[in-house]
């Protein structure tokens, strides 16, 4: 696909994202927002994973985004969409700290460090009630909250932007540096790439992206509480979606988020009354998915089409 066609496609998607929510019944708006926030955090997680950085700290970005947006709006009383800037700034700043502090940690060690930092943020949110409301939580100023349709449009537009960023990054030369870092940072350095710079860059981008998802969810629920804003489940779903859809691919998080939403809705509707059974079914579907489609949904498509590897002549 040529770049012009991709740009046109993105424009169309953006228009659809903005218009369609106003035409949908409320329950579909709810699905759209849940899909979109999941997609944002999945794309964000996938970007880091592509560079070999397995994050268990995405709930930290999410929570920071949620709290910074809520507190900012409550203090300044500016329209809801302005709060995306402090959310992204804080998410990016946290990403920078994470990359800076973890230095050259890799694999499991990096994952554990990110988990610890996200958990630490949750505890901090609990321990400073003067700022965050502590365990009692924090309400966002009600009259600033956007209508459901507006918020859905806003969020879907964000996801189009996130997927676009991920797509253009995958076509750039940086992609190869990041992908090679996954194999060996030392070997990449021998080719004249500064791994520290790329590591910080991708974590900052990923952090800012994940924080926007937290910001949206804060406006959607209108209420924040450390246990929910820094929930480990956020981190888990951020990695299940790309895994299920196709790890390290651009389309993977998109298909994965859709599939997860469908699976969770179906299991909830069918087994909703027997608590826990829905989750069990959900779990079984995921395990089967990972076992029988190691390349995820994207991998399955590729296998069916037997497409040869993309040519590098264009680079």
């Amino acid at each position: 696909m040529s770049t012009t066609r991709v740009v046109i496609l993105l424009g169309v998607l953006l228009a659809v994202a903005v218009i369609v929510p106003h035409l949908l019944p409320p329950v579909m708006d709810d699905w759209a927002i849940r899909f979109a926030t999941l997609l944002l955090i999945a794309v964000s997680w996938n970007l880091m994973a592509n560079a070999g950085l397995i994050s268990l700290g995405h709930s930290g970005f999410w929570g920071l985004g949620a709290y910074s947006a809520g507190l900012f709006a409550n203090v300044t009383q500016l329209p809801f969409w302005v709060s995306i800037f402090p959310a992204m700034a804080l998410g990016a700043a946290f990403g920078f700290c994470l990359a800076f502090i973890t230095g050259r940690l890799r694999g499991l060690f990096f994952a554990i460090a990110t988990l610890a930092m996200a958990e630490a943020l949750r505890v901090v949110a609990l321990m400073v009630p003067a700022l965050t409301g502590g365990a009692e939580g924090l309400f966002l100023t009600d009259h600033l909250r956007p209508s459901r349709e507006t918020l859905t449009s806003f969020t879907l537009a964000l996801t189009v932007a996130a997927v676009a960023i991920s797509y253009f990054l995958s076509r750039s030369r940086y992609h190869y540096a990041l992908r090679a870092m996954r194999d060996s940072e030392a070997a990449v350095q021998m080719l004249g790439v500064n791994p520290a710079r790329f590591r910080i860059g991708i974590t900052v981008l990923s952090g800012a992206m994940a924080a926007t998802a937290g910001m949206v969810s804060a406006w959607y629920t209108g209420y924040l509480e450390p246990g929910a804003a820094f929930d480990l489940k956020i981190t888990i779903s951020a990695q299940i979606a790309p895994l299920f859809g196709g790890l390290y691919t651009v389309a993977g998080p998109v298909f994965g988020s859709m599939a997860l939403l469908v699976v969770s809705e179906v299991t909830r509707l069918h087994f909703g009354n027997t608590a826990g059974f829905g989750l069990l079914a959900y779990g079984i579907v995921l395990v089967c998915g990972v076992m029988f489609m190691p390349g995820g949904i994207v991998g399955l498509f590729r296998k069916l089409r037997r497409r040869p590897r993309a040519s590098m002549e264009a680079v």
Binding site: R173, Y176, A177, R179, A180, R182, D183, S184, A186, A187, V188, M190, L191, G192, V193, R309, M312, V315
Partner: peptide
């Protein structure tokens, strides 16, 4: 100073072309 390291250290999942393009990254 460009190094061909001990034990080769090519990027196994990348194609030959991608490995070469990375070599000329600087």
């Amino acid at each position: 100073i460009c190094l061909s390291p001990e034990g080769r250290q090519v990027f196994p999942e990348l194609t030959v072309m991608e490995n070469l393009v990375l070599g000329g990254f600087n």
